[in-house]
Structure formats: C-alpha cells, structure tokens
C-alpha cells in the first residue's frame, strides 16, 4: 500500500520539479538527454578498481542540483535506494577478492572493497543522472527530444499515454487493494483464489477505458498519427552546455584529477 502512494508521490514530485524555470530547465531537452548519455557512458567506463577517478564526476550532479534548485534530501533518499541488484552482486566482491589494493600507513583496503565501493559510487551517480534528467526536463520535453532523435511518433504517443494513465490506474489499484484489505485484514496479499478475478476485472475495465480513450481521440480527428507541437530550435547555449560537459567528462576520464590534486598536495607537503 505504501508502495503505491509512494510511487505516485514520486512521479508527481518529479513532475513538479520539471516545471521549474531555472537555467538548467531552460536548456534544450535534447542537449540534456545527450549530456546525460555522455555522462553515463563515461561513468560506467571506469574500471572495476577505479575509485578516486570517479569522484570528479560528482561535480555534474552537484552543479545541476544547485542550479536547478532540486531539493537535495528528497533526491538523496531516492538515490540511496540504489538497485538491490548492485548491492546483491557487489557485496560478493569484498568476500571473493581480498587482495590488498590501497595500502596506507594505518590501513590496508582490499581490492574487493574498492570494487564494491566503485560499484556503489557508480550506482549512485547513474541513478542521479537519470533522476536529474527527468526532474529538470519533464516528460513532455523528453518526448520532444525523442521526436528530434527520430523516435517513431507511434512509440512516443504510446509512451505519453502510458505515463498519463499511470496516475489513473495506480489510484484505481490503490482503491481496490484498500477495499480488499478492509475485508481481509489478516492477509499479506491477494489470496490465490482471487488472483484472477481481481486483476482480471481490472484488466477488463482497463480495456473498456482504452476503448473510450480511443473514441475520444477519434472524435478529435486522430487518424493513427500523433502530431507533436513545434520543435524548439537548438541554441548556442545548448550546444555549449552539451559541449562543455562532454569535454569535462572526457578530461576526467583521461586524467585522474583526484590523484593529480593528491600528488600536488603531497608534493607541497614534502
């Protein structure tokens, strides 16, 4: 139940954030989609045992969060729920690989731990990138970017419809489950004998709804083709945004900034 309210809340919050009008929100959606792409590829291209090199990648989400006025704590909560698969798989690394890797005067850290940490950091960074994309762009503009990337209109319309009706159907499922659990307080989930009828009835209602939606689309001249609005032109600042970040990401990829700063510090110290 909390799952349901939570997911609706989640979608609506990100929707709301997407409506803001900050510098970042005004960047062309296509530029943001591509920047996110470059960022993701660079992030995951780091090797299994690279940790310090990943840290400068944090500048991107931090700057975007600050400029786009995204609430830090709400974002952090979401990101901490990193895919269970990452932890599930990553947790074996320290067990399976205990060779020392980082040797400091007071502690020796095994490469298993380094690779686990590296995985977690990547998990956080990639999750942040996706959430920041949607919360600084909004679904409508994502659709626009997809259109400019030559994604077929049929798919985009279908994608938008799914998005739109998630609200309606999740609420409906919420009502059904509430009604069900009120009459079966001791059960953890839907009883076996009700699996088919509960879900099936919802499915039939959904199909009827789809038909009504189709009717109302047809009444407004729908002929199988989705007509998107005006394509917004790309401006110089959009190219600059994409170019600037890409160059920065590539520099990070080729030079370990953290280590450079570190050796500089040590050098100065000596």
């Amino acid at each position: 139940m909390s799952n349901i309210t939570q997911s609706l809340y989640n979608i609506r919050l990100l929707d709301e954030l997407g409506e803001k009008k900050t510098v970042i929100h005004q960047i062309h959606p296509l530029a943001k989609v591509l920047t996110t792409g470059v960022y993701l590829v660079v992030t995951v291209s780091f090797g299994r045992y690279e940790l310090s090199g990943l840290i400068p990648l944090l500048f991107y989400p931090i700057i975007v969060i600050a400029l786009a006025e995204i609430p830090v704590i709400t974002m952090a909560k979401r990101v901490l729920l990193v895919s269970p698969l990452i932890i599930g798989i990553g947790v074996f690394n320290p067990i399976l690989n205990q060779d020392p890797m980082i040797v400091l005067p007071w502690i020796i850290i095994s490469s298993g731990w380094v690779s686990f940490l590296s995985l977690l950091v990547k998990g956080v960074l990639t999750a942040l990138a996706a959430l920041l994309l949607i919360s600084t762009t909004g679904i409508t503009k994502i659709a626009l970017a997809l259109r400019m990337m030559r994604v077929p209109k049929v798919f985009i319309l279908q994608f938008l419809l799914t998005y739109r009706y998630i609200s309606v159907l999740v609420e409906e499922v919420g009502r059904i489950i509430r009604a069900y659990s009120l009459r079966s307080p001791r059960e953890k989930g839907i009883r076996f004998s009700n699996w088919g009828s509960l879900t099936g009835q919802l499915l039939i209602r959904t199909l009827d709804r789809a038909q009504r939606v189709y009717y109302s689309m047809r009444c407004r001249g729908f002929k199988g083709e989705y007509n998107v609005g005006r394509e917004v032109g790309i401006q110089f600042r959009d190219i600059l945004y994409l170019g600037g970040w890409s160059v920065y990401f590539l520099i990070i990829r080729y030079f370990n900034i953290s280590e450079l700063i570190g050796s500089l510090m040590i050098g100065v110290g000596k």
Binding site: V154, L157, Q158, F159, L160, L161, T162, Y163, R164, Y165, I166, V168, L169, V170, T206, L207, R209, A210, Q211, V213, Y214, M217, G224, Y226
Partner: peptide, 9 residues
C-alpha cells in the same frame, strides 16, 4: 495505440 498506452499503465 491507446490500447497499448492504457495497458502499459
């Protein structure tokens, strides 16, 4: 198309 959209939801 609307059927796919609503079924996705």
């Amino acid at each position: 198309i609307p059927l796919m959209g609503v079924m996705g939801a």
